[in-house]
Design a protein around this nucleic acid. Structure first.
Lengths: 343, 343
DNA sequence: ACACCCGCTGCAAACCTTTGCAATGTGTGC
DNA sequence: GCACACATTGCAAAGGTTTGCAGCGGGTGT
């Protein structure tokens, strides 16, 4: 069916070894021979059979990417970056969607292990031991999560939180609600940590709500909690939840941003598309995907060398239209502003 | 290193053939033997080496999915569906992002061919001949595009357009703008065709604008064109563009939906998240992804059998908050309503 | 009681490539 | 002129699985 190395060898009048070497280690074969072999290979459109190659070398040329949800714009951005970098290195990317389920996640990582050279695992929800177990000996790079002894690419969520809180404090907000992300999520913990660390210094009181799943739908009921909390601004776990909050606020007749400032997180594309445009903490998601693959390739080339590198990418607050100073009486009262008070 | 079939065979006290059969064709081995083998395999965590298997069977167990842009929510939804179905069939999905470039697209399809059993190609931008050439002998299923002799999964865009126009007509709109999608896009053509076919019957006059790239950014300037066109409603090529339009309308101070009704297309998640929520023609995108993989698996199981099946999935208009009757004077005048007229 | 068939299992080839080792031939240093 | 080094090439094994064919029993039909 397909053209094999034997066919090329036969036509070029050399042995298969020579053909193999002409393609893989050109220096080992005489220039004239190499040229002839290459010409024949080109003419026949020969490409080495990857299965046969990986059977003997043990390398597949594939790298796996596991995300909790491809439809989440944050992850599709990471995926895009990872794919781009992998392609530059002639590697193929295998995608796996864990459907936000730690069990599926572990299963996928374990199953993938045999078919790829390494895995980029995004926002792992599973625990450290489980990670250890399912990854086994497969090289693994974590994104948005860290685990002892494993290389990872982190987005500086804590600092992003600091920027967001300082921004709100500067606007005059004194009571701010935070919508926590998934309990098992490392980055949710980071964001919370950053918030707790920065808020006191700014004189901001934080009302922690949640944890919630990181979805638009979760943002809807969360908005009501926020309103009931007496906060004048809300820091959502991510953009999706922020959108949910905005939506529900509109339904409740709350004027945004005047009566409630909203800050998202991740800087996804959609955050720029809403009206009013969402203030958000942008992270270089696509870059993170690239960096993760970069790290992985490095790890494959020099096993053990960079086994505990942690690369942290900076977050950047993007101020748009959803954050404004709070209404004066809301700040003084520290309680929900009754709707009547506004008319 | 990894546990092989030989190890399992040795421990179970049978030959490798028996192990292989116990896993692949259980009926061929005696129940008691099978159970013993399966138990040992389970205990050792044996999984067949895919490289070795594909070397002999000629099948890789991988299916490729090529999309113009993973970050586009429409495609990430298709991808999600495809991945889910593939996983059920124990197949791995191998992703490729063509970056909206027909050349990259062709290149990816060609390169992928050797490493997968078949390819799902979404919204192919390349021409029929180019498609033929790059696909070669690789089984291919098209999504949102049709090409003679190739199976495809289509979303009934034309009918979706009909529903949208009839909806607008029923609301009283008589002059409607349409923002055309990418020129080479099959579905853009379909939508236009459906619109042209349905509009006259509803007494609706159509102003065709574009073509535009299918992005949020393209929607911004398009909004100005719409305002200048004297239309009272706009049918955007997709949700992303509709969001762009909404954004720009807000900036221009146009009250939405009162002064301008907006209809999106695709029914992406974000369409439900805007305020006001976007009326859109929802397509079963995830189902389309599933169906495409389904078709592909069928094609692989029975080569040539379904080589020209076209499966069309229905579109469904989802009426939300962005479509209302036009302002009376705007309809009569058939020209842009000056802002003063509204106050 | 004999021939035959069928259920179950094992043997061994084949899939295509890479790579260690050996063989061949050419050139260099003494 | 001889030994040795080195460049170039070929041989053959190995990698793990699937599968056609054959073998070995036990059971059935006559």
């Amino acid at each position: 069916m397909a053209v094999t190395i034997h066919e090329v060898a036969r036509r070029a009048g050399v042995s298969v070894s020579t053909v193999s070497r002409a393609l893989a280690v050109p220096d080992l074969v005489r220039a004239s021979t190499r040229d002839r072999v290459l010409a024949v290979a080109e003419e026949l459109g020969y490409h080495p059979n990857r299965a046969a190659r990986s059977l003997i070398t043990g390398r597949t040329g594939n790298i796996g990417v596991v995300v909790p949800d491809v439809a989440n714009p944050f992850f599709s951005a990471v995926l895009k970056g990872a794919h781009a970098r992998a392609r530059e290195a002639q590697q193929v990317v295998f995608l796996a969607d864990a459907a936000e389920d730690p069990r599926v996640e572990a299963e996928l990582v374990a199953a993938m292990g045999k078919q790829v050279d390494g895995i980029v695992l995004c926002s792992a929800r599973m625990g450290d031991e489980e990670l250890e177990r399912s990854a086994g000996t497969t090289p693994l790079v974590l994104v948005n999560r860290c685990s002892p002894g494993r290389p990872s690419v982190l987005l500086d969520a804590a600092d992003g939180m600091r920027q967001a809180v300082e921004h709100l404090a500067a606007l005059g907000h004194r009571r701010v609600a935070h919508l926590r992300g998934p309990e098992r999520s490392w980055s949710a913990g980071e964001r919370l940590r950053g918030l707790r660390a920065a808020a006191p210094a700014c004189g901001v009181e934080v009302v922690e709500l949640g944890p919630f799943p990181p979805t638009f739908e979760a943002g809807l009921p969360a908005a009501d909690l926020v309103l009931a909390s007496g906060a004048t601004a809300v820091l959502a776990y991510n953009d999706l939840m922020a959108l949910g909050v905005m939506n529900r606020l509109a339904v409740r007749g709350v004027v945004m941003p005047a009566e409630m400032s909203v800050v998202g997180f991740d800087g996804t594309q959609v955050s720029a598309m809403t009206t009013p445009a969402l203030t958000t903490v942008a992270a270089p998601t696509e870059t993170a995907g690239r960096a993760a693959v970069e790290l992985l390739l490095d790890l494959l080339a020099h096993p053990g060398r960079h086994s505990d590198v942690v690369r942290t990418l900076p977050s950047q607050l993007v101020v748009r239209a959803t954050t404004v100073p709070p209404l004066p009486h809301a700040v003084r009262a520290g309680v929900p502003a009754p709707l009547e008070a506004l008319s």
